[in-house]
Amino acid sequence: MSAVATGKRGSLWQGLSDWANRHRKWVLAAPAIIFVIALMVVPLLYTLVLSFTDAQGSIQRAFDFVWFENYISILGDTARFWPAVWRTVIFTAVAVTLEMTIGMAVALLLRRPFMGRGLVRVVMLLPLVATPVAVAMMWLLIFEPTVGFANQVLGWLGLPAQGWISDPSTALPTLMLVDVWQWTPMVILILLAGLVGLPEEQQEAARIDGASTWQRFWHVTLPMLKTTVIAALLLRSIDAMKTFDLLYVTKGTGGGSSHEVETLNIYAYALSFDYNEYGMAAALVLIYFLIIVGVLVVLNMRRKENRR
């Protein structure tokens, strides 16, 4: 009897392992697939469902399906939504452009050996390792209009005091500068790594052909560095678009009294954690998601066209 049982079990085990063997690409990928479904697909679908409801206050309360009402009211909101889209775009475009330009210049300088290069490299990287919240607090103090260091310096130079972060018209540009201060080192780091890996031969050939420094940079270095530049650009753009800590710490919920630094992230935070309007917040986040997907699709199409 026991022999029969063992035989049965043995064949079951055999069958199972045969099955696993035949489908091994699924079996081996299963943990990853399960994680992705649990941590990305489910929340995304849940957000989608929430965005069609009027959920408010607590997600456990009963809610009604209002379908596209949230989307219509957000897309028609010229007081907060569209200005927030605009600010997100401006903040990202200006900050990343400055970071890429300065980053490239500094990386080119740091590439050549000079005395104290190691020290300069370390000092350059310091802003990068500082905690964003601490950085935000520090700049908030520096830019404080009455007692802050920035206005003291302006005073020494005989210039009028500025409102900096506290003035609605200068808050966003000031915070872009802080972002540039903190994140240019990352661009430098990436570009420098790319530059170090470039072969010297082409440079030499170009020099012999009589190319100027600018021509060598524009026609030789930059094309060879293209993939690195794109990587840095993508990383920084994604990061800049979702900047939250700097804006929230310096201007609080709602991005200041006139919403002067309210980007889409800050607005989504206000909707979900200040107003507790979860349906609206979910719809906003999905619209944001679609905007990003749209941008990526366009970029991808451009890239394919370029290849052809």
């Binding site: 404080e144 209009p145 009455t146 005091a161 409102g163 972060i165 506290s166 003035d167 609605p168 201007k251 609080g252 200041g256 009294s257 006139s258």
Partner: peptide
């Protein structure tokens, strides 16, 4: 009032 008062809690 002081400058920057619209930031003040």
């Amino acid at each position: 009032g002081p400058p920057g008062v619209t930031n003040m809690s």
